[in-house]
Simulated assay, not measured.
Amino acid sequence: MFLQPASLSAAIDLLAQQGGKLLAGGTDFFPALGQGVEPRPIIDISQLPELGRIEVGKESIRLGAGVTWSAVASALLPPGFDGLKAAAREIGSIQIQNRGTIGGNLCNASPAADSVPPLLTLDAEVEIASPRGSRTLPLADFILGNRRTALAADEIVTAILVPANRGDFTSHFVKLGSRRYLVISIVMIAVALSRAADGAIAEARVAVGSCSAVAQRLPLLEASLIGCRSVSDIAKNVLPQHLGTLSPIDDVRASATYRRDAAATLVRRAVQDCFVKAKG
């Protein structure tokens, strides 16, 4: 059964009454289905206007869950979103970017989801709606593991919320794969920095993806970067113990050892590049 509600409230009612599988861009849904048939009703929310808007407010910047990656990449957003926009340009092909959505990427909850590290550096929250009303969760609490989220069966992700002051940061994103485009990440790094009047790093946000079941921030590294005044300072403050919480695996794309070594190198480079960008 294929259902296409005309409004968000109608979609919430359908999901609560009939259950089913939500369909946004479908770029993960259909490949995962393969030659099988989805036994549950499919509720298509891809055309809901409530989910397709980007709104810049004084307190927060709201990215509707149905906003496509092409829309993210081309949106007029503050510098703090440059890392997210760079990630948007790395997600699959142009066709995938035209269909895939930010909310769908989060709900798919892949350890290699390109959007998660930059959104973590922006302190993003996930807005969720259900018949009981709406709630928000920090992104770090929303994704629970490989393909697992905190969504209840009758809940829909409606938006991603970013504090407006995160837009003042300088941000950067680096992705390592077996080729330049159309590739699942081996390692990815997102960085967001703010600098004090004297040029030193005042605040740092660093997140790593594809090196654990859920992308994660590196708080020990972030703390050590505060006060750094040069790229050489940064090199001295990126230490192996700062990446100790990562738990990379061996798979067809790379070994755990390679991932850990690559992450250490890419974190240093990404922070240095972001620092130089902030200086400019």
Rank of each mutant, 00 (worst) to 15 (best):
S110H: 03
S178G: 11
I61E: 00
L77P: 06
F81E: 04
A88D: 00
A235Q: 11
I94N: 15
R260T: 14
D168Q: 13
V267Y: 00
A88W: 00
A197R: 09
G57N: 01
Q272W: 00
L22Q: 13
A262F: 10
A263D: 09
L218D: 04
I45H: 00
R40H: 10
N105I: 10
D82S: 15
A124K: 08
L137M: 10
S74T: 14
P138K: 00
V72Q: 00
F142T: 01
V214Y: 04
A11Q: 03
F81H: 02
P131C: 08
A196Y: 08
S247N: 11
A197W: 05
G19N: 15
Q17N: 13
A215D: 06
S93K: 06
D82H: 14
S46R: 09
L266A: 02
L48D: 00
G100P: 09
D141Q: 15
F30T: 12
L218Q: 01
P248N: 03
E222Y: 03
A207T: 01
L84G: 14
V183G: 08
E203Q: 14
L220E: 11
V267A: 01
R135M: 06
I249A: 02
Q47S: 11
S232L: 13
I102F: 12
L139Q: 01
K175Q: 05
Q17K: 14
L182C: 08
R259I: 02
S74Q: 15
G104H: 07
R148W: 06
A190F: 09
M188E: 02
G227C: 05
E59H: 15
D168K: 13
V208N: 02
